[in-house]
Amino acid sequence: MPVVCSCCAQARAMLKRPKTGHSLCRECFFWAFEEEVHETIVSASLFTRGETVAIGASGGKDSTVLAHVLKVLNDRHHYGLKLLLLSVDEGITGYRDDSLETVRRNQRQYELPLKIVSYEELYGWTMDAIVKQVGLKNNCTFCGVFRRQALDRGAMMLKVDKICTGHNADDIAETVLMNVLRGDIARLRRCTAICTSGEGEGAVPRCKPLKYAYEKEIVLYAYFKRLDYFSTECIYSPNAYRGHARAFLKDLEAVRPSAIMDVIHSGENLSVREGVRMPVQGTCNRCGYISSQALCKSCMLLEGLNRGLPRLGIGKHHRLHGKILAQQPLTLDEERKLKAVDF
């Protein structure tokens, strides 16, 4: 017996919503999904009329859906936003070059301007070259740190007011769990914020309009809308430790579908004891980007790459910051520790 849509009570239901368990027809699902994102945007007052907003586009499902939904909502609810796509080219052959093709197609489909910034032009290193020096361990640290800064730099070049990223509910919940497992109380406190704020002049505010959208619903949306997206895992293996948190979250979701929202709710309501030491935000002495240390992570990593000591930026080597800023050479013993290790 065909199930009837629980929303319009007329059309035949096509899917069961992973988030609420309701059976919906295609049109009602589209409507619900889009209106939920709208509700998120309005209730958190993410945008103001007339702003230029860059959508961080990787070509993957999240950013493709984000670009599509934002364009739809911008027209439907008259946000009055000027949207554009911003992509980062990490320089990963066989992965990023293909996904950037998808972004270029999206650009034509959605008629949004596109800007691509590459690691090579910003840092002089492609991920391929980095992996060659660092190996397959820790390379995600380089990629993640560089991408964050690259997005910011691209946004500043385009003079946008805000950056939107495609982080979904699963990503946020996973990060909450991850930060608990790592005992990172400072990140735990801010990882559920929908918008970065008060980061000073060094950074463009970023927000996550899909914060409350389930990954599965994003896939459903892209599937039924027949959106053109690129779905391949990065060829440089994904991080093992985050993988644990991810697998745990998937299991939690299987036991209780609301678990993803429950984890986010927990994260939003944590209160940190007063007197717990928190990193103080400053700026990098070299590039002026936000940093809690004398040198920002990105500059440390880059310094390590350029000196041929890739482990310089991995882990904590705060003692060495002064030396690096003064451009002094490191001792042999220090150098030995920071060389790439072969396993």
């Binding site: 629980s6 929303c7 919503r17 309701h22 619900a32 509700e39 409350y212 986010i264 709710h265």
Partner: peptide, 14 residues
């Protein structure tokens, strides 16, 4: 602007 509120919205909309 909270997960709690977002859940209520989802339930209402579907």
């Amino acid at each position: 602007s909270s997960a709690f509120h977002a859940t209520l919205v989802s339930e209402k909309l579907s």
